[in-house]
Every structure is written in C-alpha cells, then in structure tokens.
Amino acid sequence: MSFEPKITLFSCHYTSQQSCAEKGKELQQLGFPASITLVRVPCTGKVQVTTLLQAFEDGADGVYVVGCPVDGCHNVKGSVRAAKRVAAVKKALEELDVESGRIEMFHLPRGLHPEFVAAGMAMDKKIRALGPSPFQS
C-alpha cells in the first residue's frame, strides 16, 4: 500500500511571504509537495518545543521549520532559537527511539526562492523513505 506522508511546515512570515501569492497556486506550479501543510508564524523564534511536538501528536509523519538565514533574521535571533528547539526535539525523538530526521531546520532567504521548494521536496522524499510515523496508533 502506498504511503502518503503528512508533513507540517512552520515557516517564518517573511520566508514564506510569496507562498501565498495567487492563493498558493504559484507554489503548486513549482512542484511544492502536496504532502506539506504550511503553518505561517510571525517568526520561527515563536515556535516552541511544544508546538513541534504537538504537530507529531496531531499525526504528522515529519515536521520542519523554515526560518531566515542565521545572520539575517528580521528579529535578530528568531531562527537561531528555532534551530535550537528543533535540535531539542531531535534529541527527544532519539530518546524515544524514533528517527531524528523526522524533524529538520532550514535557514533560507526570504521570499519564494527555489530553495524553499527544494527544501519541501527534500523533506517529502526523506519522510517517504522513513515511512509512517511510529506515533500513529
């Protein structure tokens, strides 16, 4: 039976700004995977460990965060804080004997750059390879 992953993306308002252009159709046309649900946040520094864990509780097979470049965050340290929280969840997943690759952090330029779509495709490929979340009952 084929596996259709559910992936949750938390993206900075600025980084994902153009993803909403034409109601997201532009993103689809560029090949952004349909498996990804985009949650826009004012700043990835706002994303807490509990936010990331809740996504897994809500049935995500994979979770990733896209924030500003390390030295180019609109809120100075927001994306650095997000990366640390993603790292904390990676460690927690390992403690639960779950693949830490189910969660990732990306630092990307603002706006709809090819890297934004590429990151989505990379996550989609990785989660398809890992298979369904072991947290699915």
Partner: peptide, 21 residues
C-alpha cells in the same frame, strides 16, 4: 509549566509508540 507541557507531550508520544493510550 513549559517543560511540563513538553514532557506531557513526550509521554503521550512515547506511550503511543508502544501502542498504549
């Protein structure tokens, strides 16, 4: 409270992984 909320989530996930609610 913040750490306890994360712990609660991790316990739920850990138990779910073992097939327990």
């Amino acid at each position: 409270e913040r750490e306890a909320a994360a712990l609660a989530s991790l316990i739920r996930l850990g138990m779910k992984k073992q097939g327990k609610a």
